[in-house]
């Protein structure tokens, strides 16, 4: 790794002291993180830690009480979701991340709603990156397998050529070989210059490919550091990766019960 320390690079996204939640329920109690331009940052943490809430707060789907979210130096607070994606950051939600009753092509066009021109060029680029979507372009997204749906969700978000892509558990519920494909695509997207902020349960895989990792617990920052170093940290391993060497993590990598092979991804 000849890369400079990620923290030294110019930040594209800065979150500081973020407090947010639902109605009178405060979920995030002062979260701070930085994503350097062009890098991969992963957030791990137990279920219910507030990882998805953090993602929603960035995109204006959850009301922020205090703190700051800056993208390329400018605050995103108070903007409508459509104004936020216009700035150059796009989002793949954890669940329900495609329009099931729209065709694959219609999903992609929806992703390109804000494009003034070059829609056809972006469509071609997406079909090139995800050939399966070309084959299925006239099929309703609801009929895709879990892996194909995840590919479509990423392609939909990439239509606007974002400089930062936020992925919420892109590998959840997918069969192991499909998980490999998803991570390979994440690397490919990042190589093309797009910064990645990824929430992952599949912490070992995600941290191993990340420039920086954050552990979120109970709505607060617990730990952070370069991905591989965090992975090697005995405290992280025992508290967040399952203390029994990789045994528990191993079982997490297989599809969850009821997820039914790759069709369970939602």
């Amino acid at each position: 790794m000849a890369r400079p320390e990620p923290q030294a690079a110019e930040p594209i996204l800065e979150i500081s002291g973020l407090r947010a939640g639902y109605h009178d329920l405060e979920i995030l109690r002062g979260v701070s993180l930085v994503v350097p331009r062009g890098r991969v940052v992963t957030i791990i943490g137990p279920n219910g830690a507030g990882k998805s809430t953090l993602a929603k707060a960035v995109f204006g789907l959850v009301r922020v009480r205090s703190g700051e979210i800056r993208f390329e130096g400018q605050s995103l607070l108070g903007l409508k979701p459509s104004q936020i994606v216009q700035r150059g950051l796009c989002y793949v939600p954890q669940t329900q991340n495609v329009f099931p009753n729209l065709t694959v092509l219609e999903n992609l066009r929806l992703g390109g709603t804000l494009l003034r021109e070059g829609v056809e060029r972006r469509l071609r680029a997406m079909y090139e990156m995800f050939p399966i979507l070309w084959e299925r372009r006239h099929q309703k997204a609801g009929f895709l397998s879990g892996g194909q749906r995840q590919m479509l969700a990423m392609a939909r978000a990439l239509m606007l050529e974002p400089r930062l892509l936020l992925l919420d558990e892109p590998s959840a519920g997918l069969a192991p070989n499909v998980v490999d494909q998803v991570f390979a695509k994440v690397v490919e997207i990042n190589r093309a210059g797009c910064a990645i902020l990824m929430v992952e349960q599949n912490a070992r895989r995600a941290l191993a490919m990340s420039d920086w990792g954050y552990v979120l617990d109970m709505g607060e920052n617990a730990l952070d550091g370069p991905g591989p170093r965090l992975l090697a940290d005995p405290e992280v391993a025992s508290l967040y990766l399952g203390g029994l060497g990789g045994a528990r993590e191993k079982s997490r990598e297989t599809p969850r019960p009821g997820a039914g092979s790759e069709d369970g991804a939602r």
Binding site: K80, S82, V98, P100, L102, E106, L110, G111, T113
Partner: peptide, 20 residues
């Protein structure tokens, strides 16, 4: 198309840039 998208999944339509 935006109407159908909004009916399918409102939050996703918002973050896709649809002017709701």
């Amino acid at each position: 198309r935006a109407m159908r998208a909004l009916s399918d999944n409102a939050a996703l339509a918002w973050v896709s840039g649809v002017d709701v």
